[in-house]
Design a protein around this nucleic acid. Sequence first.
DNA 1: CTAGAATGGACAACCTGATTGTCTATATGG
DNA 2: CCATATAGACAATCAGGTTGTCCATTCTAG
Lengths: 159, 159
Amino acid sequence: MSSEQARPGFELPLRLLFVFRVIIDELHERLAREGHPDMRPMHGFVFQAVGPDGITAVELGRRLGVSKQAAGKTVEQLERLGYVERGGDPADARRKVVRLTAHGVDGLARSARIFDELRGEWAERLGGEERLRGLEDALRTLAPGNPFQLDTPRWLGST
Amino acid sequence: MSSEQARPGFELPLRLLFVFRVIIDELHERLAREGHPDMRPMHGFVFQAVGPDGITAVELGRRLGVSKQAAGKTVEQLERLGYVERGGDPADARRKVVRLTAHGVDGLARSARIFDELRGEWAERLGGEERLRGLEDALRTLAPGNPFQLDTPRWLGST
DNA sequence: CTAGAATGGACAACCTGATTGTCTATATGG
DNA sequence: CCATATAGACAATCAGGTTGTCCATTCTAG
């Protein structure tokens, strides 16, 4: 009985990207207000990869899906911004371990807190936590894998 | 009665991006099999902007959120790949209008068809067209705007 | 009608972020 | 103990984007 007009197939992917952008923009707007105006969308992924134990440039490159040189340059920038620092590994003189500074830990913690706040707002907007869970579940159903390993940077860009 | 464990706020955005990637990868895998191995994620946006009437480099740049020079370079590449061609505008000697070639129209049509096929598969995976509509509606609720104007390329990249 | 402003396009220089290739130093395992 | 693998540094290069400049054409006020 309903009108059952077909929706175009490109709507879903466009919406997915658009909502992602809106969310990330909102996150970084709030981060900027809380003392992290230099944080960029990619930094969260890097911080996550660095983790509490630190990481080497080579391993970071692997996780992010880029060359070790590219990972090294990213680390240099983050070092300049005061988010990470590099130190030698006493157990292996070849390795230089990248670790989060206090500032980096702060940025990571604030990101997590803001994401959780935002999640509450999304749930409210959708009319309840259940709806939000339903959304997340639907997305998991469509793409069950682990969404973490992101080499996404240049994936989109390549014209 | 349910366990009600809190989900982290970063799950949703990560899932959104991940599903987007999976969808776009699937699209381009099928496009490659159908004679368009050179099409890239960005091309769809460009084709859409070019449209049936053609467009100038300046206008394309505006729509894509990049400089006219960048838009011009993109057009050069698409021209080299045989997707578009440039011709003069008899009504305005300054303008050079970019138009889709037959090959470009074919690519655009196949993209639309594949997206629609994929949409059917997603609906089935989710357990029905209604579920898919619910997903799309939820995304619209979270970010109501027009998802089209995408300057997304370097938005993510900026380290 | 015409002079000045606005527009479309081309060209050049430069920046950034990535890539590959090469080199050295250090570990590791047969 | 030597051969191989690994971590990191350095250099050259590339791709995609930006700004700045210039010219041709069109539009618009006087």
